[in-house]
Amino acid sequence: MSTFLVLQPTQLWMLLRADAISIVREPVLLVNLFIGLTLPILLTTFRSEIDAYTASTIGIDSFSAYAVSFALIIPAILVGWVTGMLLLEDRDDGPLLALEVTPVGKGGFILYRSFTLALIAFAATLFSAHLLLPEKPGLHLPLAFLISLESVLISFTLVAIASNKVEGMALSKILNMLALAPLLALFDAPWRYFFGVVPGFWIGEMLYQVDSKISLSVFLIALVVHLGVLLMLYRVLIRRLG
C-alpha cells in the first residue's frame, strides 16, 4: 500500500482520472477491458448451453468446467495488457520522463500503476470467482490475490519485452495464451510439476487439484513463484524504462 502513502488523495484521483480518460478515448483499450470483464458473466449465463453444444460437437461433456480457469484469468490478463499498453505509451510519448522530474517520480508512478492494476484485477477476479466457483468459496480470496499478481506480471512483461506499442499489440496475442496455462495442471501425473515455473500453472493447481478446502502449501508455492517472476520482470522493466 506504499504507493497510496506516497501519493496524496488528489494526486491519486488525478492519475486515475487521466488513465480513465485515456482508456475511454482509445476504443481498442476500452473494448479489451469490456471483453475481459464480460466473459465470466457470459460463461455463467450460458453455461448449460455451452456444455450442451460442446458435448454434441466435440464430445466434451462439461466444457465449462475447463473454461472456468480461462474465464477467471482472462479479465486480469486483459486489464494487465491495457495497463502495460498505457505504460508503453507513457514511455514512448514521454510522460514517464516528465513524471521522473516531479515529486512522485518514475518509481512512485510505477507503484501507482501496479497497485491500481492489482486492485482492479483482484476485484474483477473476486467477482468472477463468485459467479464461476460458487461451490468453492474458500478459493475466492487466494485465487483473486494470485491472479491480481498475474495481471501485474502481464503488464510488466509487455513493457519489459516490447520496444514500442506495435510490438506490444503483437505480444498481446502471445500473452493471451497464458490464460491457458492453468490447464497444464489438468495432467494427472507428477511430471506436470515441470510446468511449475509458469505462474499460471499454480492457478490451475489450486483450481483442479486441490479440493474446496484450500491447501496452504500449494498457495505458498504459487505465491513464491509469482513473486519471483514478478521481481525478475521488475528488474528488466526498470532497465527498459531507463
Partner: peptide
Amino acid sequence: FELPTLYLRLTAMENLKLYAALY
C-alpha cells in the same frame, strides 16, 4: 525536455491539471 513529454489523449488543460496535482 527536448522532445514533448505529454499525454497525447488528454487535452492541454487536462495535461497541465494532472501535472499540477503531482506537486
